[in-house]
Computed example of a mutant assay.
Amino acid sequence: MHKTWHKAFHKRKAWKTVSRPGKLVYYMQPLVEHYFDIWMQPMPFPTIIKFMYSCVVLFFIMLPILYPLFVLMAYYGIFLYVGEEHFGLVPPPNWDLLGAANHVWRTEVTNKKYLLFVTMYIDRYRVILTAISSTVDYMRMALCFIFS
C-alpha cells in the first residue's frame, strides 16, 4: 500500500495537473503565514517595525532579480564611460546613465526658502506615517481588550 497522503503535495502525481498560479500559491504559503504571524504579534512590537521588517524581507526575496539588473546597469555605465571618454560617443538623452547619475549627485537646493519647505514636507509625512502606525497599534490593542 502506498502512503500517498503522507507525501508532500509537490511529490504526488496530482502535482502535474496543477496550474502555474496554483503552484505559486502552494510555494508562497509559508511566506504568507510568516507575514501573518509577524503582523499579528501583540502590542509591544510596533507597526512601523513590522513594516520595515516586511520591506527588508521583500528586498532579500527580490535580490535574485535585483542583482542581475544592478550588474547590467554597472556594465552599461562602464560601456558608456569608455565610449564617451575614449571614442567620443554621445549617447541619446534617454539612455545617458552617467548624465542622469551626475545630475542626481550634483542636485542641491540653493534657495533656503525651498530647503525649509522640503524639510517641513518630509517632517509632515514622517509625522503622518508615525500617527497612522500608532493608530493601528492602539486600535489592535483596544480590539484585543474588547474581544478577549
Rank of each mutant, 00 (worst) to 15 (best):
F59A: 13
F59W: 12
F60I: 05
F60E: 08
I61V: 02
M62Q: 04
L63P: 02
L63S: 04
L63F: 07
P64Q: 08
P64V: 08
I65A: 11
I65R: 01
L66A: 07
L66G: 04
Y67R: 06
P68F: 11
P68V: 12
P68N: 13
P68E: 12
L69D: 04
F70T: 14
F70I: 11
F70L: 13
V71C: 14
V71F: 15
V71E: 15
L72E: 10
L72P: 01
L72R: 05
L72I: 10
L72G: 06
M73E: 13
A74I: 02
A74S: 10
A74H: 07
Y75W: 07
Y75N: 11
Y75Q: 15
Y76C: 08
Y76Q: 15
I78N: 03
I78Y: 03
L80Y: 04
Y81A: 15
Y81D: 08
Y81K: 10
V82R: 09
V82C: 01
G83H: 00
G83S: 15
G83P: 01
E84W: 05
E84V: 13
E84S: 12
E84F: 01
E84P: 05
E84H: 02
E85R: 13
E85S: 11
E85V: 13
E85M: 13
H86C: 03
F87G: 00
F87I: 03
F87Y: 14
G88C: 04
G88F: 00
L89A: 11
L89Q: 11
V90H: 11
V90N: 13
P91M: 02
P91I: 03
P91Y: 08
P92L: 09
P92T: 06
P93K: 15
N94Y: 11
N94L: 07
W95N: 04
W95K: 00
W95Y: 06
D96R: 09
D96S: 08
D96I: 04
L97Y: 13
G99C: 10
G99D: 09
G99F: 07
A100Q: 11
A100V: 03
A101Q: 02
A101M: 13
N102C: 11
N102D: 14
N102A: 14
N102T: 09
